[in-house]
Simulated scan of single mutants.
Amino acid sequence: MAQPEKKLLETLNGKIYEHPPVWMMRQAGRHLPEYLELRGRAKDFLDFCYSPSLATEATLQPIRRYNMDGAILFADILLILDAMGRNVRFVKGEGPQLDPASSAADLDKFPLEKLLDRMSPVYETVSRVKSQLAPETTLIGFAGAPWTVAVYAIEGKGGTDKSAARLKAYQDPEDLDAILDILVETTAHYLKAQADAGADALMVFDSWAEGLAEDSMDRLVIKPTQKLIQRVRDLGVTQPIIGFPRGSGAMLEPYAKHTGVTGVGLDTALPVKWVHEALPKSMPVQGNLDPLRLISGGDAMDARIREIKSAFKDRPHIFNLGHGVTPQTPISNVERAVKVIREE
Score class of each variant (00 low, 15 high):
15 K>W: 07
72 I>L: 02
177 D>Q: 15
177 D>R: 14
95 G>F: 08
112 L>K: 10
143 A>M: 06
328 Q>T: 15
178 A>E: 10
155 E>G: 05
295 I>R: 07
12 L>S: 00
187 T>C: 01
306 R>I: 05
306 R>T: 11
125 T>R: 09
206 D>K: 02
20 P>V: 01
156 G>R: 01
92 K>C: 13
159 G>P: 08
271 P>T: 04
184 V>Q: 00
64 R>Q: 14
276 H>W: 02
120 S>I: 03
57 E>N: 07
144 G>M: 01
87 N>V: 13
66 Y>N: 11
121 P>M: 08
342 R>Q: 08
60 L>W: 08
231 R>T: 14
308 I>P: 05
33 P>H: 09
329 T>F: 09
344 E>F: 12
67 N>V: 07
14 G>S: 09
142 F>I: 05
301 M>D: 08
64 R>A: 14
281 K>S: 15
153 A>E: 03
43 K>W: 12
337 A>F: 03
193 A>M: 11
90 F>K: 10
118 R>P: 14
91 V>R: 12
229 I>E: 00
193 A>S: 14
290 D>F: 11
83 A>L: 08
89 R>P: 13
177 D>W: 14
323 H>G: 01
104 A>W: 11
329 T>W: 08
59 T>P: 03
253 E>S: 10
89 R>N: 11
282 S>L: 05
217 M>W: 04
344 E>D: 15
38 L>G: 01
15 K>R: 14
233 R>T: 00
40 G>H: 04
343 E>Y: 13
95 G>R: 00
